[in-house]
Design a protein around this nucleic acid. Structure first.
Lengths: 341, 341
DNA sequence: CATGCATCTGTGAGCGTTCACAGTAGAGAA
DNA sequence: TTCTCTACTGTGAACGCTCACAGATGCATG
């Protein structure tokens, strides 16, 4: 009677029901938690599922439940940033896996251009995904507001700046990480501590600068605008920033750089200027990217807990989808001491 | 009468039909190409769609067509490789965009462990995607055979080694790229040309080594096994390979390294050994990764046309889904001359 | 005037699920 | 006994769409 699953026509819930000698409803109940099903029926259904190789048709299910059982990973960044920043990779991978653990596929969306943004929003607003993991660090991003308006659950990576709507997000404690690094530089005897910041329309740029300022004040060091230059997270801007710093304040003995990539640029410039690191100038980075321990000298930096960030993003997004209020999660960073400071 | 799309209940094809004063069938025909529809009806439907904000429910469509209108991007690689190799990023992004142009969502799947592999295969075999973009460089990958057996259209990135089944793939011309690099080294006067290969169970490892050998022979240089060391694409293995090379053949004047990342390792070792690049030893890489022009000295390398590779992968996969036979596409590489050779 | 053909349109059926509801059986309480 | 409650099971009706088919129209052809 029973036959193995045919490649041609995949087994349906009907086939399973017939095979198990029960009704569709019972099979469906087994599929959805197994409540109100007798042990005997459940066993029969399980066996029938195994025999037929049945896999639920998600389209049919989604059609009636109205849920898609999938979420979007939406990246609204200019192209370069995506490639230069290794954090995105870690984040993407960890989110994919955290979702896979719950059997939820991740749909990757990249909105670099206005046109792509429109297309992706259309897709999302049509209800084709249950929620959105948003990676978008720039302030005033209209996507956040649009999604909120459409009633789509969203969890952002990093605090979305300049938003009037309340949106859940998960972030590392940028400010405290910066504090910790500057405290470390101070503790190792540095007294003229400069900084190369990130763009000031990103949370990382703003918060890390704030942590730097706070700690300088707390240590009793004077605030000096000559010690602050603004970068854009690129290696080139780090190199440029270090040049400016050396010119404006030749007596600097430490630089807190708001990203490892920029720190590479800083190291380039310092090497070219004949400064020894860390003997003449200590350099502290941020991110603990793979480049951090590959650089010469290896980089003392602040590790962001990307695995936990991803896990929390997925967890809070699913909670949001289940009806909970937007949540904010701030995760602690960790100082990683290597050669450069 | 007509009202804007309600956030609560999205417009259905019924709403559009009523709004346009036609039947569901006509609306459906407009949606699917507009054949056998009078201009007047089409205009009315288009207007109604715009007014209602209608977006097709893909689940309902998929339920009846049996197609999901989505494809999977399946990565079956050990974790490290994914992060270290910038090519994956380029590939992933370009594929996402090429698919987005055709309004097809990309579902990202990562199968690092056996468990993940099983889960992803189950999902794919259930027919939840129409096809698979496969990134898996190791030979004898059982995934290829499984997918083929399940009748799922597949296009691989790079030639799948050790497969008995015929599977379509898109690849750069590794062998010719290697030839070109070795020819370049020869043309600039080098006569003791060594190589650090990739793993020999990957197409890149095999083909680039073959190109190296061919060109040596074509140039009338003797084949010397002391000049060949095998790496694993990691920076560390490049450093290790260079050490072995310097010991076994102290007179080498050039190294063709099968990846930029390994070439970084080679440069590290050479610098430590006091060798000048390119004066004492020329170094040629492969990939043209971002690191190639960031290294000291910048790396002469072979560029793989990742944008075209992605575009071709998507194109051939869609053709395969449409019923065409598996296709093989080989794309030309390009020599990029910088400081190291 | 019938016939054929191409173009256009509406209708019913059905894709594979879940959900609400009705119904059954058995156990315990009144 | 009879009633109520709980645990379990089956059945129709959707969900929103496409597809096959039947029908209608207009126009050229025999």
């Amino acid at each position: 009677m029973s036959t193995a699953a045919s490649r041609r026509r995949p087994a349906t819930i009907h086939d399973v029901a017939r095979e198990a000698g029960v009704s569709r409803g019972t099979v469906s109940r087994v599929l959805n938690g197994g409540h109100y099903v007798s042990p005997a029926a459940k066993a029969a259904v399980d066996a029938a599922i195994r025999r037929t190789g049945y896999v639920v048709n998600r389209h049919a299910r989604s059609l009636i439940t109205g849920k898609s059982d999938s979420v979007a990973f939406l990246l609204t960044e200019p192209q370069e940033r995506f490639f230069e920043d290794p954090n995105f990779n870690v984040l993407l991978r960890a989110c994919t896996q955290a979702l896979a653990d719950r059997d939820i596929p991740l749909i990757l969306m990249i909105a670099g251009t206005e046109d792509e943004r429109r297309r992706n929003l259309r897709y999302i607003e049509a209800g084709h995904v249950d929620g959105v993991l948003l990676v978008s660090s720039h302030s005033g991003d209209p996507v956040v507001a649009r999604l909120h308006e459409a009633g789509v659950p969203v969890v952002a990576c990093g605090k979305p700046l300049g938003q009037t709507t309340r949106v859940g997000y998960v972030a590392a404690d940028d400010r405290d990480g910066a504090r910790e690094m500057v405290r470390h530089l101070y503790a190792t005897g540095r007294r003229r501590i400069a900084t190369v910041t990130g763009p000031l329309d990103t949370p990382g740029g703003v918060e890390r600068l704030a942590g730097y300022r706070e700690t300088l004040a707390a240590c009793g060091l004077p605030a000096d605008d000559d010690l602050i230059v603004t970068g854009d997270y690129s290696r080139a801007s780090g190199a440029e920033g270090a040049r400016a710093l050396l010119e404006r304040a030749p007596d600097v003995d430490a630089v807190f750089v708001a990203s490892d990539l920029m720190a590479q640029g800083v190291l380039d410039t310092l090497a070219r200027a004949g400064k020894r690191v860390p003997e003449d100038i200590a350099v502290g980075g941020f991110d603990d990217s793979p480049a951090a321990h590959a650089s010469q000298p290896s980089l003392t930096t602040i590790r962001q807990p990307w695995d936990r960030i991803s896990a929390e993003m997925v967890r809070t997004l699913l909670a949001r989808i289940a009806g909970e209020d937007p949540a904010t999660v701030i995760l602690p960073t960790e100082l990683v001491i290597r050669e450069s400071a």
